[in-house]
Computed example of a mutant assay.
Amino acid sequence: MELSKFFIKAELIPVICQDERNGEVLMLGYANEEALRRTMESGTAWFFSRSRQKLWNKGETSGNFIYVTKILSDCDDDTLIYIGTPKGPVCHTGNRTCFYTTLWEKNN
């Protein structure tokens, strides 16, 4: 598969990570073409860090890898979902997912 088609609009594209066991959204990161290629080759989630300006393999420091089993693309080919199983908490804060803070909730 030609991966460059995903990076026509931008050098970095958003990647949502989702737990394959229950559908929970774990985190959002960004990938460039090399990060996507490494994810497909290794089976673990790779991203491009916008703050450090370098590639990183989620879990390389903590051991909390995300083992990717499927990658989905949206209809515009400019956003991806890595579907897989996390080993341990995903968030650097120690929380299972990065989405643990409620911003708003409708009261019934």
Rank of each mutant, 00 (worst) to 15 (best):
A31W: 00
Q18E: 12
L26D: 02
G29T: 07
E20N: 10
Q18F: 05
T39D: 04
R38E: 13
F7V: 06
E41Q: 13
N32I: 01
K5T: 12
V15T: 11
G29E: 08
R38V: 06
F6P: 00
M40P: 10
R37D: 02
L36M: 09
C17D: 11
K5I: 14
E11L: 12
L28W: 01
V15H: 00
E2S: 13
N22Q: 07
E24S: 11
R37P: 00
P14I: 04
L12W: 04
L26W: 05
A10K: 15
Q18N: 02
E2M: 08
E11C: 08
L12C: 06
M27T: 11
L3W: 07
L36G: 00
N32R: 06
L26C: 03
G43A: 08
Y30G: 05
E11F: 09
D19C: 07
E24A: 14
L26Y: 01
I8Q: 15
L12N: 14
E11W: 11
R21S: 11
E41H: 10
E34L: 13
Q18D: 00
D19T: 00
E11R: 15
V25M: 10
F6E: 06
I13H: 05
N22T: 02
L28M: 13
P14F: 05
A35N: 12
V25G: 00
Q18Y: 05
G29V: 07
R38W: 05
F6Q: 05
A10V: 05
D19S: 09
I16W: 02
E2N: 14
P14H: 09
M40V: 02
T39A: 02
G23H: 11
S42T: 14
L3V: 08
E41S: 09
R38M: 14
A10L: 07
I13Q: 02
L36V: 13
K5F: 12
E2P: 14
F7I: 04
